[in-house]
Structure formats: C-alpha cells, structure tokens
C-alpha cells in the first residue's frame, strides 16, 4: 500500500468515526451538558462545604472559583483521554471480530488509534466550546491565564497523553487474548488513573509523601500535567521536562502493548464467544 493511500484510509477512518459519534445528536448533547452540569454541581457543593468548615478562603493555592474551573475542565480532559473507553480491542477479541482486521491490508493498531483519536478530538472540541463559554462570561485572570500559546501547548499535550492512554488501555484490553472478559481490568485502570492523576481531587491536596511517590508513576502526566498546561501554571522548563517524561511513558506503554499483542496473537482462535 502506497503512503498516499495509507494516509487516505486513516483519514477516512477518522471521519467515519466522527460521523458515528454524532449519529444520535440529541442524546449526545444532553449527555454532554448533563455530565458537565452534574460534575460541576457535585464539586461545587463539596468544596464550598470544605471551605466553609475549614474557615479558609484559599487551600493549597485553590480558591473556590479556581476549584470550580478545575472541576469544569478535569472531567473533560479525562474524557478526551478515554477515547473509546473500555472494550475498543477486547470486544473485538472476545467476539472474534478481530479476524477482519487481521485479514485487511491495514495495521490494526493504526486503525484503532485513529478511531480512538477521532473520539478524543470530538471531546476536545467540546472542551474548547466550554472554554469559550467560560472565557466569554466568567473569565478572570486570577483563576487561570488564557493565551493562545497555552492553548497550543495544551492541544499538543492532550494529543500526546491521549495516545499514551490508548497504549496504556490497550495493555489491559489485549489481556482478553487470555482471559476473555477483562471489563473489570479496564474499570480498575480508569478508576486508579482518575484518582492518582488528580481527576477526583487536585494532587496538591494529597499528602506530600504521596505526591513525591506519584511523580514516579505515569498518572500525574495523564491528567494533572494537561490541566496545569491549560491553566498556564507551568514554566517552559517544567513544561518541557513533563512533556519529555510523558513521551517516555508513552513509549513504555507502546512497547509493553506491542509485546502483549505479539504474544496474544498466538492464543487467538478467531472463534469468538
């Protein structure tokens, strides 16, 4: 296959996936605004209560306004990384649908990554929409510093960590070659990464020792790093070092995932259940 036609099919897959995503438009928008609304309401009341009982207006550098912005953006960032979510590979293995991908003259990983990124891109557009609304009506430089430069850096980081998450997810997904039903493993990964990455509570609220340990894991680079990039709180040096570490984790996940894929193919019967 020539490189031109190779690019073509990747683009087609990307567009086809986007069309699938907006097939149920009403549902899509209700789910989107509903999720954002409830996440925000829960976070607001929880932290308003914490601020009230603690008698402080700032905790670990967060005011209640900063906290609201954090909980407005973090679920969206997490959703972008999630792409297709659990089942994007394991279901194909479980159902025996992987056969078609093995027969097509295309790379399964490229195909799946493209559909994954199509979903991520769509959620990224949602984030931009929410950011636009926020900037139009509630923008306050005390809460976060908006600049086009930060937005470009954020877009780069979010693509990087989405690809990283894809490979991380694929590690659990590919275990379906051995265990058939691995839904629970996907949930474990999603839940731990959301907690240890700072999606449930900002990482600065964790005890200092826990924060130090977490720096040696991939989780802060998946959620906290993109969030800090969006907020514009990272210096150029910190940004570059974090981006480098995040890339390193991506390569590690890719290596493990490829290794499992190679081993798993020998276990695959193609029958499905």
């Amino acid at each position: 296959m020539s490189s031109k036609s190779n690019k073509n099919w990747l683009g087609q897959v990307f567009l086809m996936e986007l069309r699938n995503l907006i097939a149920y438009r009403a549902d899509f928008w209700v789910n989107f605004f509903g999720q954002t609304f409830f996440s925000l309401v829960v976070a607001y009341f929880l932290w308003a209560s914490v601020f009230e009982y603690s008698g402080q207006t700032t905790i670990n550098g967060f005011t209640i306004q900063k906290m609201i912005f954090y909980y407005l953006m973090v679920p969206l960032i997490f959703r972008i990384q999630q792409g297709h979510g659990i089942g994007f590979l394991s279901k194909e293995i479980y159902d025996g649908n992987l056969n078609k991908f093995l027969l097509y003259p295309i790379n399964v990983y490229s195909y799946k990554l493209m559909t994954y990124l199509a979903t991520s891109s769509f959620y990224l557009l949602q984030l931009f929409l929410i950011l636009l609304i926020y900037n139009l009506f509630f923008y306050d430089p005390q809460i976060y510093s908006f600049s086009l430069y930060n937005l470009i850096r954020f877009s780069f980081v979010i693509v990087l960590v989405s690809i990283s998450f894809f490979y991380l997810y694929s590690i659990t997904e590919l275990l379906a070659f051995w265990f058939d039903n691995i839904w629970s493993l996907g949930v474990i990964l999603r839940f731990t990464s959301s907690f240890l990455g700072g999606a449930l509570i900002p990482l600065t609220f964790f005890p200092t020792s826990a924060q130090t340990i977490l720096q040696y894991t991939p989780f802060p680079y998946l959620i906290d790093f993109p969030m800090q990039t969006l907020q514009g709180t990272l210096s150029t040096e910190s940004f570059l070092s974090n981006a480098l570490i995040a890339t390193g984790w991506l390569l590690v996940f890719r290596f493990i995932s490829t290794l499992i894929w190679k081993q798993g193919q020998y276990k695959y019967t193609g029958i499905g259940i």
Binding site: V50, N181, W183, S184, I188, F191, F195, L200, P207
Partner: peptide, 28 residues
C-alpha cells in the same frame, strides 16, 4: 478470571473511596 478481577476491582474502588474522603478530612 473475571470473577477474580471483579473482586480486585471492587476492593480497589472501595479503597479509593476511603482515600478520597481521608484526603478531604485532612483539610476540614
């Protein structure tokens, strides 16, 4: 295997719930 994974999954989720509130109570 799924039987086993589910147990592990729920234990992790339970731990995370407790850790979540433990962290909150560090500040109030």
């Amino acid at each position: 295997a799924d039987f086993f994974f589910r147990v592990v999954m729920d234990i992790i989720i339970y731990i995370v719930h407790f850790l979540f509130f433990s962290i909150i109570y560090l500040h109030t």
